[in-house]
Design a protein around this nucleic acid. Sequence first.
RNA 1: GGCGCGUUCGUCUAGUGGUUCAGGACGCCGGCCUCUCACGUCGGUAGCACGGGUUCAAAUCCCGUACGCGCUACCA
Length: 501
Amino acid sequence: MIRVRFAPSPTGFVHVGGLRTALYNYLFAKRNNGRFILRIEDTDRSRFIEGATNNIIKVLNWAGLIPDEGPEQGGGFGPYFQSQRTQLYRQFAEQLLRAGYAYYAFDTPEEIDKLRQTASERNLQPKYDSSTRMSMRNSLSLSDDQVRHNLETGIPHVIRLLIPENRTFTVHDLIRGQVTFHSSQVDDQVLIKSDGFPTYHLANVVDDHLMEISHVIRGEEWLSSVPKHLYLYECLGWNPPEMAHLPLIFNPDGTKMSKRDIQSLSALPTGKVDPDVQSYINAGYEKDAIVNHIALLGWNPGDDRELFSLQELVDHFSLERVNKAAAIFDIPKLNHINQQHLSRKSASVLAREVLTELSARGITAQTQEYLEQVVKLMQPRLYLRNQFFEASHYFFLDPETYDADVVKKRWTENSAKYLLEFVEEIAKLELFDKNSLETALQVVASRNTVNAGQVIHPVRLAATGVGAGPGLYELLELLGKERVINRLKKAAQVIPLLQKP
RNA sequence: GGCGCGUUCGUCUAGUGGUUCAGGACGCCGGCCUCUCACGUCGGUAGCACGGGUUCAAAUCCCGUACGCGCUACCA
């Protein structure tokens, strides 16, 4: 049984890279009829942020990555909060202690600092390991009596893993192949902190084993700590899970994505990008597009296809096709993918979504049918759902201004005359549809022996106030006879005044 | 500094020794479509980090260098 987990710590917002890790775990699980587990790694009290867990769950739900087991849905391997499993970690730490694989250490933070300082002064790597551990205060260097006394009098202490000398640890990473580490490079990692909570290293090994995780799929930043984990599995007598370390995702300038210095998506500092998934949700990106885009940051299906729904990703995903190299989060590409998903969306669904923005602005559409028609016309012209009103306001409100550049470019001294003639023609129309509108406009143009464009552009400007948008006849038809006539008449009066210097 | 990982167009990537003077996508430039803006479509631009090997043959294998990134916490 394939069992994978997404194991974030509730320390703030959901990172784009975190979402992708969750996605790959989800895809791998679903592709292999396995289970996707959410586990909250809340063992660091000092960084705990209230509400962060709910936020993680909310974003996962939004993206459609619903866990099979986790805080919300439970499961037979709970609890799914590490903070509720401290007894377990303690128990295994003591087992390691008894077997001589771990030891107590009583050093104060100041003493550790000093160790680090003297090491770097001598240009050595500051490490708590075989080269230094005997000069520190721990159950290896102290007498049994002293150790017992320290423990009984409640002197703060941690439990450290005793890393053996001259050993080698090799992981067969599913993405990177064989990676080997020497034990001289790994220090005696703290397993249980002085506050009684475990560190990540102990907790993730214990939980992954107890939760029967078959594959650990996580970010590359964890690769370096794999030897510690491997050794823990060994000491505990357990088989390690399969491992896959994913490439990282960076800013366009190659730096780590950071929330610092980022005010909004519309005003990103050059070379930077917002790491907060919520920002993209708020900006109105399609969830399928976000999922699609991050899926492609490090994975590809092996052919030229690049538009996928979540289900299609499930159908095609494999770890073998995950890349080794880090990727850059590119907003223009995201926008393109978003536009593709947007244009494939059904108009009725989009109309419903767009309605919230309209209501927020106090705009009402005359009917649901009308809104859907507008959406249909606007769909290929949008790359972001939230641009809808900005691009289509004239379907809901009469124009109050006329784009100065368009006036300058398209309005001539005869325009008002054409407008009024066109009004006259369409006033006679019984059927106000695009065909008859086109015919009417042709009549005006040929009567004045000018190109249709000479009439079309002023009419568009008059009816919408802007120079861009859907085809004129479709637009007019949708607007409706009365509204069009009123707007044209008004424009014929107002625009010439604007022209005067 | 040490250790680890990585390096194909600006970006995401295909490519697992010959069928590739490296293919697709975004972006950019130009054409077509056309009443505008988009969509669509056609074409163009641009890349195997560098240096050594191995081989009849290397983007593909090996070594080195450079550069980037990660880790080096009682954070995850």
